[in-house]
Every structure is written in C-alpha cells, then in structure tokens.
C-alpha cells in the first residue's frame, strides 16, 4: 500500500505542533528556541560593547552556550537506552566463583554481566569522543564569528548562524568519526552487544527447554533442513523447478474459473 505523506503530516502536526507539545517536532522546536536565545545574547553582547573586542567576546559566549546546548543531545549511537544502574545486580555474579549444580547458569550470568560492562564502557568512550567533537565545533564556530562584526539580527541571519554551527559540528564530528578510536569504540559497542544478546538468548532458551517450549534454535534447525531438502530436490534432474506465479497466469486461471461458472 502506498504511504500517504499528507495524512502522516497531518497526524503529527495535529498532535500538537507547539513548543513543549507532544508533537514529534517538539525537540526541534525546543532546540530552535534555545539556539535563538543564545543568538539573541550574542547580538545583545556585540551591540552593547565597543568593537572589535565585543564581537569576539560575544562570539565566545555564543560558542560556549552551543557547546553546552549540544553536549546533552542524544546522538544515534546511544542505542542501549542509558547506562545507569541497570548492570549493578548482574555485577554481583561477576565477582562470585561459579560453583555447584548451577555453575553453567552462573557462568552465563557472568558473561552477560561482562558484556553489559563492555557495552557501557564503549558507550562512554563514544560519548567522550562526541563531547570532544562538540568542543572542537564550538571553538571553530567562535573563530568564524569572531572573524567579522556581528550582523544585524534577523530571521535569515539566525538561520544562517544555525547553518554555520551545523557545518562546524559536522566537520568536527566527521574528523572524529574517521579516527581509529571512534571505529574501535563503535566496533566494541556492537561486538559487546552481540555477545550480550547471544548469552541472553541462550539463557532464555535454557528456560524454554525446561518448560518444553519451542526455541528459535529448533526452528532454525528445521528451516535449515527444509533449505537442504529444497536444494537436494532442485539438484535432481527429474525435478523441474517450480514455476513462479505470474500475473498473466493468475489472470488466465481466473478467466478459466469464470468461464466454468
């Protein structure tokens, strides 16, 4: 079914397209307002002090404000939904020797805890790199602004300033993202997440077996058997490949059925 963009547009704008409202646009409206506030302070500062020192000082304050504003922005790599507290109970298992009948269970719990610790550490590394990039972006933004007198404020100028800030932010981020520390931290984040998911899945499957419930591993085994069977059948010369349905074929069948009735 074709999507209806206009209906979607109506849906989210009708849910409250106002600052602080429930609309999906609310974060961007908030961002816009806060950017505008920082920009107004910049224009006021530049206008109320003798040039050229005024422009430099006002630009500096503007850059610092942006650095603070964007330092808390959730960038796409923050996938785990936060790294606070949730690992604490699991860490208990990390520090205990695995003994007795539940040894395998304890070992798995330790592996899950260790994977979660690695996820948190990788996420902290990524956040540090991101914060450094925002700091570098703020410095570049200040340098660009200080190079010329502050323009007269207008909606167009504000939009241009925002564009300049984004350019600085993307330049700084791109340098960081191409670096070895970033790719290492991202890989560690993904690899630890894979390990965590694998151990968690094994744990859930263990419980499922105790309750005699089907598991994904069993379904996978059956799927692979079916695929192998299909390949085997295709390899036999006497078995022709099943014909895929064609629109013409469907129409012909429908016409034949209609003719019979």
């Amino acid at each position: 079914m074709q999507p209806d963009p206009w209906a979607e547009w109506q849906a989210f704008s009708a849910t409250g397209a106002a600052p602080g409202g429930p609309s999906s646009f609310a974060p961007f409206a908030d961002l816009t307002e806060r950017f505008n506030a920082a920009a107004r302070a910049y224009f006021d500062g530049a206008a109320n002090a003798p040039a050229p020192a005024a422009a430099a000082a006002a630009a500096g304050s503007f850059g610092v404000a942006l650095r603070e504003l964007f330092s808390n922005i959730q960038l796409p790599w923050n996938l785990s939904g936060g790294a606070n507290g949730s690992s604490a109970p699991a860490m208990f298992a990390m520090n205990s020797p695995a003994l007795g009948a539940s040894r395998e269970f304890q070992l798995r719990a330790q592996r899950i805890a260790d994977a979660w610790r690695r996820i948190e550490e990788a996420q902290r590394r990524l956040q540090r790199i991101g914060a450094d990039a925002v700091r570098a972006a703020a410095a570049a933004f200040i340098a660009r602004l200080a190079a010329s007198p502050a323009p007269a404020p207008s909606a167009e100028v504000l939009h241009k300033l925002y564009g300049t800030w984004i350019d600085c932010a993307e330049d700084a981020y791109s340098r960081a993202a191409h670096s070895e520390p970033f790719s290492s931290a991202l890989a560690e984040y993904v690899n630890a997440s894979s390990e965590w998911r694998k151990e968690l899945q094994a744990s859930v499957e263990h419980s499922a077996k105790l309750l005699d419930l089907p598991t994904r591993s069993e379904i996978n085994t059956l799927t692979q058997r079916l695929i192998a069977l299909e390949h085997e059948l295709r390899a036999r010369p006497e078995v022709t490949r099943p014909k895929a349905a064609t629109a013409t074929g469907k129409r012909q069948r429908a016409q034949r059925k209609k003719a019979k009735t």
């Binding site: 922005i73 796409p76 790599w77 939009h159 984004i166 993307e170």
Partner: peptide
Amino acid sequence: SLMPFRLTQQKYVDLL
C-alpha cells in the same frame, strides 16, 4: 550516525 547533526537535527529545524 554518518552525519548526525544534519540528519537528526538540521533537516527538521530547516523544515520549521
């Protein structure tokens, strides 16, 4: 994540 500032912020602000 290839261009997070443009793709997750700027395009929406620009639209507004």
